[in-house]
Amino acid sequence: MKILVTVKRVEDPYQAIKVKPDGSGIVTDGMNYKPNPFDEIAVEEALRLRDKHQGEVIAVTLGTDRSTAELRQALAMGADRGILVKHDGPLDSDAVARLLAKVVETEKPDLILMGKQAIDDDQNQAGQLLAEYLHVGQATFASKKDSLESEAEKTKVPGLQVLDGARAVRVIREVDGGLETLEVTLPAVVTVDLRLNLPRYASLPNIMKAKKKEVKELTPAALGVDPTPKVMARKFAAPPARKGGIKVPDVATLVDKLRNEAKVI
């Protein structure tokens, strides 16, 4: 099974995000960058599927040379080789999907695994757009019934079930009000949600090995794609701050406040 998995360089989710005073963007001084957490879950799923069904995992990223760091992290987790589509400048989900579609045309993977959204722009579009451009099926928000503390998770069982000779995959999706099961003919795009798995850490020997793995560089021009964004974020602001409230000493005071001051019960 040949699996293509995407990795986006994003701001460290545990660092505070501050808006520049002129509203032109966010403060990047002192910011650390990480692979998008949802993409790490996608990489983990790809590795589990490869280890069970054989094949190859190719990690792809789009961005400047700096994105190589996140690509190498995916390789250190265990991906076999990498592709960097080099571009300096804003990319919207649509441009990302059109660029990835061209990579897919060349690589012809059986399955494309992606995070359901990147934690910077939170658009949650690229996977679905890619599936439409490729005229293939999609299963977004892939999850599983077993908890992240289950035996299945500890033994690294893939959440996606590959059906008869890699003809299709069965995917459990986290949807409003429950869990949905779909079967998607391969090739397909699957985007992953939080509770599909716990991604592994890269070991030191694997980090060293990853430095020697092949990374192919491509450009939008070489792929024949105009990456001009259709969607542009132009003005950034912090959300209105919520006024801190008061501490109450006991439950009786709390009930009194809720009833007589806030009037919500």
């Binding site: 949650n124 679905q128 999609q138």
Partner: peptide
């Protein structure tokens, strides 16, 4: 922007050559 809206609308956007904003 329900799970269905998020799943469906990007495909609609691609078919209409439209840009899309989420949430």
């Amino acid at each position: 922007a329900s799970s269905t809206g998020k799943d469906l609308m990007p495909r609609v956007a691609a078919r209409l050559s439209a840009g899309m904003a989420t949430d």
